[in-house]
Design a binder for these strands. Structure first.
Lengths: 165, 165
DNA sequence: CTTTCTGGTTTCATTATGCTACCACATTGG
DNA sequence: CCAATGTGGTAGCATAATGAAACCAGAAAG
């Protein structure tokens, strides 16, 4: 079976179990462009109908999309982003900006702009608790409140070897 | 064959062709934790050795990792992040923060902290060109300099129907 | 009341994944 | 120097996921 990652005590792994499949992210990309109907997703992504059906159900089960009845007697519906789904815009934007920088430099297919000014938004950056931009070499990962004993053990081990990373 | 997305004139799709597979992101997560050796990646991710070998080669081919000889006579090597690979830290962080918020609320397995202060970094946000935080409803996607005729046509079509999104 | 559209499900061939075993070369210990 | 062990893979095979196409039921349109 396709390995699931959720047992790894890691939010990255947990997120990947929900959206870590290529089609899911393509569906979400379309959802952020305003697509809501099954057949529109199909046309826009090119996914096979069974795969699309499967992924839409999966995203609904995980609270990313919600199915909303539209026709009068309701076998017809739309898929809308939930707040949890909308919160993925940062992930999509991070991916898009990375792709723009390294794969399509100076030829961005799409721009994320501020609709009030028409100006592209700033590249995403990381900031410290006070809001000051922080460079990659000042970042460090360390166990949090949800760390398991296994996670803690791993950090103990690496701390003695290196200064971590 | 597994469908590739690069033909879609979209940086998200292009990025997914490079890192859009579950194992690739798990490998990158480990790389950011300081892992560099084949067997360490194997232990940490649990990926089968052939899959791991395949993905490491793929990531190297796409400029995310570079293979560095270490043993004296060099059949032994390490995989290090390139600048292009390091630039994925925003993507990983976005995924981690989303997973922390929605899947492990109040029980984050790992925290991204500023190593100088030990304080967790701020949640990623989007900002306009002047650096002011911008809310999701003010964001809009529009064709950029690399948009194909097809992309442009699609935006023309949707503009007439709705006010876009 | 027939036709078409939407939103799927089923079937089946093709690919990718995940094990396990195996292998070549290097290093280590004695 | 020689054996044992570690590293970084490949090879082969069973199983699971994917993708294409056909099929289908209910709703809407005419």
């Amino acid at each position: 079976m396709r390995t699931r990652f959720s047992n790894q005590n890691c939010s990255v792994a947990a997120a990947l179990d929900v959206i870590g499949d290529g089609w899911s992210l393509m569906i979400l990309r379309e959802a952020f462009l305003g697509t809501r109907r099954f057949s529109d997703f199909q046309r826009a992504t090119g996914a096979a109908r069974n795969i699309l059906s499967d992924r839409l159900t999966h995203l609904e089960d995980h609270g990313i999309l919600q199915r909303i009845d539209v026709g009068v007697h309701g076998t017809r519906h739309e898929y809308a982003l939930t707040p949890q789904g909308k919160d993925l815009s940062v992930v999509l934007t991070a991916l898009r900006q990375w792709g723009d920088r390294w794969i399509h430099p100076d030829a961005e297919p799409l721009l994320v702009v501020d609709r009030r000014t028409g100006e592209p938004i700033a590249p995403l950056r990381m900031h410290d608790a006070e809001g000051t931009p922080i460079s990659g070499r000042h970042l460090e990962l360390r166990p949090g409140p949800g760390a398991t004993a296994e996670t803690l053990a791993r950090f103990e081990a690496s701390k003695s070897r290196t200064g971590s990373r």
